[in-house]
Structures are given as C-alpha cells and as structure tokens.
Design a protein around this nucleic acid. Structure first.
Lengths: 175, 175
DNA sequence: TTCAGTATTTTGTAATGCAAAGCAATCTAT
DNA sequence: ATAGATTGCTTTGCATTACAAAATACTGAA
C-alpha cells in the first residue's frame, strides 16, 4: 500500500548500512570515526588547509586542529605551512597514512561497484534515475559529494534554492 | 558513462542531506545528536530498558546511562524501574520530551512523503524497486529500520548471511 | 543458601565539539 | 610606510560522548 513508508524504510536501511560499515572500518584501522573521516577526506581531496578541511567535514576549526594533533602524533598526517601565505597550514596525508587506508578491508563502494556493474544497463539507468529523484526530493542535489560511501560527511553547499539549513559560504580554492 | 560513479555520488548526497538535517534539528531543539537520537528512538519504540536502548543505538550501556542522566535532568525522560524485574530500568519519554520533538521543524520525512506522494504511481514503484536493489547490494536489507530519516542510527541485526560487521545478538523483547 | 548470570550504574580515561581568546601573517586604506 | 581590519590557525576552558572494567543490585536455579 504505502509505498512512501517502504521507501523510507529502505533509505534508513541504506544509511544504517553505511554507518555500520564506518564503525567497522573504525575498529579495523584503530582510528576513531572523526579521525577516519579526516583521513578519507584528505585521501580524496589531497592536502587541504585546516579551514578547508573543517568546512569539508562540517566541523569547527578548533575541532579539526585537535583531531590533526592526534593524527600527526600517529604519523598519519603531516602539517606543512603554505609558502605563499604563511598563515595557512596544509594537512598532508603521509605515506603511512595512505597505506593504512589502502590496507583497510574492502570498502563498501567496492562491493557496490562490483555488483552494480554486473547489472543490466537498463537496471543501472533505473537506479541512477531513482536516486536522482530521491536526492532531489531531499534537496541534496546541491551537495558536493565524493563518490565514496565509507564515511559520513563531506560538506559544501552550492546554489541557492532548496532547504536552508545548509548555508556555508562559497569556497575559494587556492592555497 | 560510468553510472556506478553517478550512483555513488547520489547516495553520498542523500546520506549527507540527512546528516545535515540532523545537525539542523540538533541546533533547533538544543539537544546534542546522541540526545536527539535517544529521544527519537524512544518516540518510535516507546519506553525501553537501558540495555535495549543501547542495542538499538549501537552504543555501550554506560554511554546511554550518561546520556539519560542529562535528558532526565532536562525533564525530557523519566526512569522507571520495572515491577516484574527490579534490575531493569525503563526509559520513558516525558510529555515535555514528546512535545519538544513535535515542535521541531518539519522533519525530512515529512518533506519526503509529501513530494513522494505527488508522484505518479509508476514512479513510486520505480523508486522503491531501485532502493530495494541498492539496499540489497549493500547487504542492508537485514537491518531493522524505522520509517524515519531524521537521525542516523537504529540498530539490530536479524538473519545470517551477508556482511559480517553486524553481529549484535538477537533481542528478546519483554520488560 | 549459594552461586552464576543479568541489568544498570560508577569510575576512570580518552576523544569530540565548540566558543572565545590569543597570535601571527596578510591586506587595505590611508 | 603603517595603523587597523581581516584571515587562518592554535590555545583554553568546558560540556558531552564513548567505552572498558569494577561495583552494585536483583533474579533464578541448584
């Protein structure tokens, strides 16, 4: 009958699955979730200033500073001052840090991609279309998101328009 | 071309949107995210023992105890010892607690349901089918999920089978 | 009664998370 | 040039999470 209930339950299942996978990864790597999120964000985006990192992760700068302190102590991240603007500090993942992520158990998106690509072309299209629909309904199509499921937050708003509880500023990318 | 990348980006957008909405709700209600999650869990499930609550939220019992301490101090939750088994303590949302949730801004699922029900029947079916597919791929179809998006975690594993990083015990429901 | 098991709280420690204050570098307008 | 505003990060102080291990309280069975 009520397809909207069905859809909501399925969405919750999906979100929950990624959440549980995150916690699993966290245990495997010995990092806390915020630390893991930080590493993943750096892996995807490359070196970032602390401010950009904080914006990406939707956290206060002070919070990111203390997370980086611990990651640096573990030699997973290195801080490097920008040459062009010495106020800025770049957080760079170390080789050891990247290695840790690589050695982590098969990521959820690996599983997803493998099974997704086994599907018929029309099935793939149907799923993408449906997800687009849902994303639009939730006002999520504005959000800049990396193609990875593992950890639960990249940030950034683009356009105007839809739900207003996302009002971060535009970002200028230049270190 | 690469539809799997598209699908992953869309999924991340969706997950991210619910996360941002959670943080928004958190600010509006003046509760932290774990506190909000606790209240929502109680709203959905009704009074629960501390142990059940912890299992639902995928947290340690000790953690839930301290969260409840603060919610109780705010008069949003009341503790009540079970009569039949005096070891057990039931966490009951107070009227004030339920009121707080009700006065919260329009929930994400309200938006979702409203727009979803405006769609054609075949579109609804397509979306549900696609979500089922995705849920299955992620091994999420086992997860017991309430039909609500607002806050990011209800727990519980059912069957055997798929991804093994969800190994909570079976739950016996009787206070 | 005694004892193993169950349910919760207490204790102790580490990590988040943030606002506000502090500092250093840069920019802007004089 | 240079005072004042701004930007970018860290420090400080505080409240909250989060969890393991120990302590407490109750139950049910031998």
């Amino acid at each position: 009958m009520d397809k909207s209930q069905d859809a909501l339950v399925l969405l919750r299942q999906i979100i929950r699955a990624t959440d549980l996978h995150d916690k699993h990864l966290s245990r495997m790597t010995g990092l806390t979730m915020p630390q893991l999120l930080t590493m993943q964000t750096l892996r995807i985006n490359g070196p970032l200033t602390i401010g950009m990192l904080a914006k990406e992760m939707n956290l206060a700068q002070a919070t990111v500073t203390s997370i980086l302190d611990r990651l640096e102590r573990k030699n997973l991240v290195r801080r490097e001052r920008s040459h062009t603007d010495k106020r800025k500090v770049l957080a760079c993942p170390t080789d050891e840090g990247l290695e840790l992520l690589k050695s982590a158990p098969a990521t959820l998106q690996d599983t997803f991609i493998r099974q997704f690509e086994d599907m018929h072309d029309w099935e793939q299209s149907m799923i993408v279309a449906a997800l687009e629909h849902v994303s639009h309904i939730l006002g999520a199509h504005h959000l800049d998101a990396a193609p990875m499921l593992d950890i639960g937050a990249l940030d950034r708003t683009n356009e105007s328009g839809i739900p207003d509880y996302l009002k971060s500023e535009q970002n200028s990318l230049k270190n």
